[in-house]
Computed example of a mutant assay.
Amino acid sequence: MKKTLYNIAGTVALLLGILGIFLPVLPTTPFLLLASACYMRGSARMHHWLMNQRHLGPYLRNIQSGRGIPLRAKIMALAVMWTSITLSMWFVPYFWARVMMPVPGIAVTIYLFRIRTLDPSAEPPLDQIRRE
């Protein structure tokens, strides 16, 4: 029963993380890390799949090993997020909503600045990563 709940939570977190790729205010990284942690406790097969998935796997492995997030990913995340927040503030008719919109943006910006930036020159070859 416990494993089933971890797998359900992992799947929900994974879906939210994937949505976060396209929705700038929804954070991707924390949800993907949560999905990884849930799958690690609920299903070795799902955890293995997530960690070796073509697009998300290297990203997760770099973060979990403490190597960081690529600079390009940080810049893109900040640019898209702040563009979206600024446009939303322009169109939202409620003053209180306009005032509150930058709050998650500031939190995500602080989070991204605090995470280490991946040094591409220190990156091991892809075949070496897959063997680990």
Rank of each mutant, 00 (worst) to 15 (best):
K3I: 03
L5M: 13
L5G: 01
L5C: 02
Y6K: 01
Y6L: 02
A9Y: 12
A9K: 09
G10R: 12
T11L: 04
T11K: 01
T11M: 01
A13T: 01
L14W: 01
L15A: 15
G17V: 02
G17Y: 00
I18R: 02
I21Q: 07
I21S: 02
P24T: 11
V25R: 07
V25Q: 08
T28C: 04
T29L: 14
L32C: 11
L33C: 10
L34I: 15
S36T: 08
S36W: 14
R41N: 14
S43T: 10
M46V: 00
H47K: 13
W49A: 03
W49Q: 05
W49T: 01
M51S: 10
N52K: 08
Q53G: 03
R54W: 11
L56W: 06
L56E: 03
L56A: 07
P58W: 00
P58A: 01
P58I: 00
P58H: 00
Y59I: 07
L60N: 05
N62C: 10
N62L: 04
G66W: 05
R67A: 02
G68Q: 03
I69F: 06
I69A: 07
P70E: 12
A73G: 03
K74P: 05
I75H: 08
M76N: 11
L78Y: 07
V80D: 03
M81T: 07
T83I: 10
I85F: 04
I85K: 00
I85G: 00
T86C: 12
L87A: 15
S88T: 15
M89C: 15
W90K: 08
V92A: 13
V92S: 07
V92P: 01
P93C: 04
Y94M: 12
Y94G: 06
F95E: 13
A97L: 15
A97V: 15
V99S: 03
M101W: 09
M101P: 00
M101V: 04
P102I: 09
G105E: 05
A107S: 08
A107P: 03
A107V: 14
V108A: 13
V108Q: 13
V108H: 06
L112R: 03
L112W: 06
I115A: 02
R116Y: 09
P120H: 06
P120W: 06
S121N: 11
A122D: 12
E123C: 07
P124K: 02
P124W: 00
P124H: 04
P125W: 10
L126F: 11
D127H: 14
I129H: 03
I129K: 07
R131N: 13
